[in-house]
Simulated assay, not measured.
Amino acid sequence: MNIDFAAVLVALTILTGGIWLLDALVLAPRRTRVNVGDSESAPQVPATALKLPWYVDLSKSFFPVILAVLILRSFVVEPFRIPSESMVPTLLKGDFILVNKFAYGLRLPVLNAKLIENGQPKRGDVVVFRYPLEPAVAYIKRVVGLPGDRLAYRQGQLVINGQAVSLTPLVNGGTAETGYRQFTEQLGEVTHQIQMLANGRWGVAGLWSGLQLQREPDGSMAWSYQVPAGHFFVMGDNRDNSADSRYWGLVPEENLIGKAFFIWMNLDCITFNGHCGRIGNGIR
């Protein structure tokens, strides 16, 4: 079961803040003067000298902390952990990253209603978004197609608006695992690395029904698609091992969470198995 941490934080903020407010407006005034003993002439003490109910004490302690975390996580920066190898070699499984929540505008937590407009993703951005088929799950991919773009994919070569994307093989295949090769790709102003199967084969099984499939003169399969307004076409950098827009469709603008920009830890480094050199790297 996937937990919506934004909803949990909002609920805890409302709960603890509500108890604090209830105490300030209702409970505390009742404790301002408390009779000690049975006589009206018995000495009285201020409520501040009495022990607060445990739920009020806890709420007063945790409300500022929870509120600060909610504001920071919702409007400034949010941490994520990379759970798969779909973004290799840019991001490795076990990387802990930070996401800029202000990059594409501010949204209300849970409701996701936009409060402030602050630009749109650019081609080549690494974005975190709510998976369209299961919005409680966060996905991370690279923006390949912007609204209005005409995309095509032929033999591992991406074509955008009729122009083949620059693809340069890395010497000796880069650091790719066996059976794969790495390339440098130029998407807009972003130069980054991708990984593909060394044999150049990719399957058409399970491809999204919205893609227009066609057979090339050499017998290979290719696809094309034009991105509609308000949507983005995303792909993983591990091109032949990524569940992305080619398989489940587009990312609506309202599903965007933010732009990934920084690697602050890797799980293998925590367990002393390497990859510590990645810590502190920016994400391109």
Rank of each mutant, 00 (worst) to 15 (best):
P135L: 09
L133Y: 08
D57I: 04
R73K: 11
V26Q: 10
V65S: 02
G17S: 10
A138H: 09
V76M: 09
F63S: 09
F96D: 00
K101A: 00
A138F: 07
G37K: 09
S86A: 12
N35M: 15
F129K: 05
G94N: 00
F80R: 07
R81G: 12
V137G: 00
V56G: 06
L52T: 08
F80L: 02
V88R: 01
A113P: 03
W20T: 13
P89Y: 08
V88G: 04
F63M: 05
N112P: 06
T90H: 07
V26F: 11
L52E: 15
L27C: 01
E117G: 12
E85T: 13
A28N: 03
E40I: 09
F80K: 01
R31Q: 11
L115K: 05
L22Y: 14
I71A: 15
S39N: 13
P79T: 08
F96M: 04
A136L: 13
L15H: 09
L108S: 00
L72Q: 07
D125F: 07
L98D: 00
R107F: 08
A68M: 03
T90C: 00
I116N: 03
R30M: 14
S61V: 10
N100K: 09
L106Y: 01
R123H: 07
V69S: 03
R73G: 08
L133D: 14
T16K: 04
N118W: 12
E78Y: 00
E40C: 07
I19L: 12
E117R: 10
L133W: 03
